[in-house]
């Protein structure tokens, strides 16, 4: 009679293939669901979710992976929107305007990042907050009039096409975050997040890694802004610079899970669906509710939904060593 130990996991392997299945299912839903329903409102909500995935994921690349807290993500978003809108409405092909908008955001990111990243502490956060607010005030003073699409552009307006662009961008941003985590750069970036001094001591070029994360982050945030400029028929040019965009990015990332790939995706879906409900029923204080929710998550449960899922998985997946007797 031999005794052997078997590790029983087979029963609950559902937890292992669920993520992959979830990704495929999510993409299929994203592609086909709005087309099946085909309502203005559905297209809009799906568009908003994709826009916010991009926004949240771009913040996550910087804050979640590289550990650099930006409080001015609205600056990158706004610059992308401003540049793309101006170029596009003055006759530049959209694709080019879109790209230039993203690059303009990177340029501003570098202007703030290069001097502030050399110093530790809160300088980068202050700098980004500063650039966002200064741009918001300056833009609202110099471009006080609402920006509207021209007649022919409105006539040719096609929301589904804009949605699929947003979907593509959300997938591209998350894909870029995934590739970044798989690249050799990821070790340096994560090391900078964990302990800057130790990273420096082991030969990681701290500034270069921070700037890499910042350029990726600001590029995608700028593209998200360009997408906003492409989708909105009319808006005040200073609107995309509102600190609310920064807050949305923070909240989405924290709801989902800071520093995880899935976090901003889950967070954005949750955030937009809940916001659409709250904004209808509690117009005035839904921002207060989100603000309190955000504070609670940061203080009490900083891991977000991804962490909750991991804990759940751990409870069910604890490997039970069972003794099996064989004759």
């Amino acid at each position: 009679m031999k005794e052997m130990t078997l590790t029983k996991r087979t029963k609950l392997s559902v937890f292992r293939w669920l993520p992959q299945a979830g990704i495929i299912l999510l993409i299929l839903i994203a592609i086909f669901f709005p087309r099946l329903v085909d309502k203005q409102n559905t297209w809009n909500i799906f568009f908003l979710i994709c826009l916010h995935i991009t926004l949240g994921q771009s913040w996550n690349i910087l804050a979640g992976f590289a550990g650099q807290t930006s409080l001015g993500h609205a600056a990158f978003f706004g610059i992308g929107a401003l540049v793309t809108r101006i170029l596009w409405l003055s006759g530049t092909p959209f694709a080019l305007a879109f790209l230039v908008g993203g690059l303009a955001a990177v340029t501003f990111g570098m202007i703030i990042g290069a001097p502030t990243f050399r110093l530790r502490g809160a300088y980068f956060a202050i700098g980004t907050l500063g650039v966002a607010e200064v741009l918001r005030i300056t833009v609202s003073q110099n471009l006080p009039l609402i920006s509207s699409m021209s007649g022919p552009l409105i006539a040719a307006y096609n929301l589904p096409a804009r949605y699929y662009l947003a979907l593509g961008l959300a997938i591209a941003t998350t894909g870029a975050a995934y590739l970044l985590l798989r690249s050799p750069w990821s070790l340096g970036i994560l090391a900078v997040r964990e302990d800057e001094g130790a990273a420096q001591a082991t030969g990681v070029h701290v500034l270069r890694h921070k700037l890499l994360a910042l350029s990726l982050s600001s590029f995608f945030a700028g593209l998200a802004g360009g997408l906003f400029a492409f989708q909105q028929i009319s808006y005040y040019p200073s609107a995309p610079f509102s600190p609310l965009w920064t807050f949305d990015a923070l909240l989405i990332t924290f709801i989902g899970g800071l520093g995880t790939l899935a976090g901003p995706v889950i967070g954005a879906i949750f955030f937009i669906l809940v916001r659409e409900q709250l904004a209808v029923n509690l117009v005035e204080i839904h921002q207060v509710i989100f603000g309190i929710l955000f504070i609670l998550i940061v203080l009490i449960f900083p891991g977000g939904l991804v962490e909750a899922w991991e804990r759940l998985k751990r409870i069910f997946l604890t490997t039970k060593d069972t003794k099996v007797t064989k004759d």
Binding site: T69, A122, P243, F254, V288, G291, F294, I295, V298, L299
Partner: peptide, 12 residues
Amino acid sequence: NSLLVSFGLTLV
């Protein structure tokens, strides 16, 4: 954390 929380508090 103080930056994040106080930023949320700003909104509230």
